[in-house]
Design a protein around this nucleic acid. Structure first.
Lengths: 254, 254
DNA sequence: CCATGACCAGATGTGCTTATCTGGTCATCC
DNA sequence: GGATGACCAGATAAGCACATCTGGTCATGG
């Protein structure tokens, strides 16, 4: 028999000012983690930088890890929303558009990128102790489903298995994000151009080359948007868990 | 005025048994570095494992670094020879053949791979202290030349600059070699298949798609073999420096 | 109620000493 | 002449005492 108090607290909608404070804290955390890395970013720093007391942070999240999980989740939602908005126009959406805007959005979100790439420089112990990043696994799985759908609509080639294609996509994206920033001066290419290059590479590697009927194109647009919305929905759910008082990040397995 | 002694020593051809011993030492070093990494592989270990005294190693190379440089160079030559032999058949050689055999040869040579990828796990301080791996820069430069040649023969597309294409190739290869071994069990793909995948990806990303005349194809075969032979020549020269008594690895900049 | 910050235990870092290891040399011997 | 391995200085690791830091708690006050 649950106590009425707890239930009331759990159901109480997040007050706007409280949510605003949560975001202020996350903003501070984002800046600090990008400048100093996870290991060297303390709760005290975050509190001071956000203009709140340390205890206040624990009114929002139950641990340091939960706070940073919320931060990553927020950034992930923002990233996906950026992609969603970018492809939101009236015309059709091709897988290639998705690749390109995904690349652009990832380039603009160092934290999501770090999580996806397993960058220990930024994420430190958050990654080192649990190399099993569940996010990456989920992304792979979703990608596999998306590829299968595209395949059914004749958009991508069928002489490679989805598993092989997931390998190919993972490798190519990883390589682009890790290597291109390390290239010497004279090989540097602008971010816009890199996104084009990456999209082009994936497109050429995956595309069936068939000319699609308007119906097929429409189906692919729908599938692409559905895929994006599905990811966005999952990401929003996770973020919601991280921002809701009743949960406070308990779902974040240590 | 050089001393006659030094000249005589420098010109003296390497005795076969001496060279055999050098290779035995390198064999031992190879096994140890792959098992324990550079940092934990000592000269004593190598000497014991090769069945020679420590001083003997210094009759071949003037320092530990020079020994391991020789090792990497030997492996690099072997890798390129593998590629060279693989494409040596009577028929023509396409860039795609080159990509594929390069991938296969690299997969079979962990040391060359480690050097190219900058793997600190294996190479340790050998890399950490001088992140400027001159080899990588040389490879990029040669690749650029090769791409330009291919372009002149109409084999690869012209709507991307060579710099962009070098980025694309670097990123894709890097990603394949780093990510695919880290994929979870259910996504594992055989080495053969991965080489196909990588070659396919590069081919599709770079190929002009034009149908080439027999003359053009022959020119591309020649260019590819010339490129390979040029790399092999350079690699052999470097290896020779590392195995010749007169030099003993002095060229290896610390 | 909720925000605060003093407080604490455990983690992390620091400086130092001691011990061990190891790259490189060279007198010795074959 | 060439191979050896004892030898040494400097590097690296291990141990340790001490100081500092930091995640998380909670009594207090508004």
């Amino acid at each position: 028999m649950p106590s009425p108090d707890t239930d009331a607290q759990a159901r109480r909608p997040e007050q706007p000012q409280r949510e605003e404070r949560a975001h202020r804290i996350l903003d501070a955390a984002a800046e600090l983690i990008l400048r100093w890395g996870y290991d060297k970013t303390t709760i005290d720093d975050v509190a001071r930088s956000a203009g709140v007391a340390k205890g206040t942070i624990y009114l929002h999240w139950k641990s340091r890890e939960a706070l940073f999980a919320a931060l990553l989740r927020r950034d992930r939602v923002a990233m996906l929303e950026q992609v969603r908005n970018a492809v939101a126009g009236p015309g059709g959406v091709t897988p290639r558009d998705l690749y390109r805007h995904l690349a652009l959005a990832l380039m603009a979100r160092p934290l999501v990128r770090a999580a996806l790439l397993g960058d220990t420089e930024v994420l430190g112990k958050l990654i080192r102790q649990k190399p099993k990043v569940q996010t990456v696994e989920a992304v792979r799985s979703l990608a596999g489903i998306y590829l299968t759908t595209l395949r059914e609509h004749g958009a991508i080639r069928e002489d490679l298995t989805p598993v092989e294609q997931v390998n190919m996509i993972s490798a190519t994206m990883y390589g682009f994000f890790v290597i291109t920033p390390q290239m010497p001066e004279e090989y540097q290419v602008s971010g816009e151009r890199l996104a084009d290059l990456l999209a082009e590479t994936l497109h050429r590697a995956l595309d069936s080359g068939r000319t699609l009927s308007p119906e097929q194109s429409a189906a692919i647009t729908r599938a692409t948007l559905a895929y994006l919305d599905r990811g966005l929905g999952l990401a929003r759910d996770r973020l919601h868990l991280s921002l809701t008082t009743s949960d406070m990040g308990k779902d974040y397995v240590r």
